[in-house]
Simulated assay, not measured.
Amino acid sequence: FSFFCTSVNFSMETISTGTVVLQDSGFKEANIGDNVTLRCSCQDEKLALFTWYQQRLGGTPELISRWAKGAPSPTVMQRFRQRFNIVQSPGEHQTNLLTITGLQATDSATYFCGVHVFGSIQFGDGIFVRVRASASYTQSVVQAEASAELGRGEPLELSCTVEAETCSGEKSVYWLKHGASQVIVHPGEDCETSVRNCTVRLGIQSVEPTDAGVYYCVLSSCGEILFGNGTEVQITGPNASHVLVYWLSTSLGLFIVATVALMIVVYNLKRKLTTNGRGKNKKFSQLKSIIVVPNSFLH
């Protein structure tokens, strides 16, 4: 895969410099106890630093590691040192590999690779790692809509129904959007632990082209994470009502401009005629005096 660096709703400033980042993206599933390796590389010779971040459902990005160019080894944050390992791919000095050993349910998260070039921070698309639990709970996630095609500016409302077993801990439902170049975590909703079925909705008042993508309803319950089938949302363009409003507004504006222009033309024309009329009367009076004065000598 080859993507341009993009920001991913981090609470930090990012600057786009056109650097190309190649990172595993989309979704990866694994079982508890498995090992997974995530790959990231950057083809910019000015690369100064590699970083990896973990973002759990409903959480904020947390730094896993950083590796400065030329440093003999990476710096791994204390919480991740036991099972997270960072290495450089043999023969590829600008390729970074993140390996997670002995996967646990809490490792289910989105993993972003970040690079620093000229002081700017840029990120790959991110990949969501789903760790399948071995629990025998009967749970399900059913999304109501398989697809939705909307015009720009129209409202979007998605819903899903989850069925979860009664167990210790909270039941939360989240919305993940996987677009062309990023994975965004939408705020989750808590379901009452005493309620087996729970229906949650996601609403966007006015969609924009950036809202296009596949939306997944995700249930986190009983130490397990379940995904719905996904709803593909396509944004085709402005809707009819917005086009009508735009057309009426444009027409009204043109009418006002034309009316003002016509009033100016009429005013200038009237002023010109008035000025010309006064000039003609003055010349006629002068001519009349010239004719009348000589006639007085005839008497």
Rank of each mutant, 00 (worst) to 15 (best):
S181N: 15
V185F: 04
K283I: 13
T231N: 10
L254G: 14
T259G: 15
P90K: 13
F227Q: 07
L49E: 07
A164P: 05
T6H: 05
C160A: 15
A212C: 14
A258L: 09
E45K: 10
R39E: 08
W52M: 02
I256H: 12
V20L: 10
L226G: 06
K171S: 14
N96D: 15
F255P: 07
G26A: 04
G124Q: 08
V20Y: 02
L156S: 12
V214P: 01
M12N: 09
L248K: 05
Q182K: 06
C167L: 08
N295Y: 08
A164M: 11
R81W: 01
Q23D: 09
T259E: 15
F123E: 02
K288W: 12
Q55K: 06
W175V: 10
L202R: 01
S2V: 07
P72Y: 06
V21F: 02
G223T: 09
A30E: 06
G179E: 04
V76C: 00
G59R: 04
Q234L: 10
S65C: 07
L262I: 07
V129P: 01
Q94G: 05
E157N: 08
S172P: 00
I127R: 02
E45W: 05
I204C: 01
R196Y: 02
C198R: 00
A68I: 15
G230F: 03
A71K: 11
V207S: 01
S108M: 06
V162N: 04
I121Q: 09
K288M: 10
V257W: 02
G253D: 06
F84N: 01
Q139R: 14
A48R: 04
V36W: 00
M12P: 02
N281L: 14
W175T: 13
G179P: 06
S89H: 12
A144V: 07
I235R: 00
I121L: 13
L273K: 15
L98F: 00
E192P: 06
H299T: 08
G277W: 11
N239E: 11
T193P: 04
T14Q: 10
T19E: 12
C191R: 03
A240E: 15
L262G: 07
G277S: 15
I204Y: 01
R66N: 09
V195M: 11
V173Y: 04
V245F: 11
K171T: 14
G102D: 14
V245L: 15
N268P: 00
I290K: 14
P294F: 05
N85V: 09
R196T: 03
D125T: 11
R271M: 08
N276R: 10
G179R: 03
E165S: 14
V21Y: 00
N229R: 11
Q234T: 12
Y246I: 03
G237A: 08
S7G: 13
N85T: 10
E232Y: 03
G70Y: 08
R201V: 04
V76L: 03
C191W: 00
S249E: 15
V115Q: 03
G126W: 01
C5A: 13
G230A: 07
S194Y: 08
F284A: 15
P74N: 03
L176A: 10
K28R: 09
C5F: 04
I291M: 07
I256A: 14
T101F: 04
S147P: 01
A30R: 05
T138Y: 10
V195P: 02
Q54V: 02
V292T: 10
Q143S: 12
L103Y: 05
I264M: 12
A133W: 05
E13M: 09
V131N: 10
L244E: 12
A71Y: 12
V214N: 00
K272A: 06
G119E: 12
V260W: 05
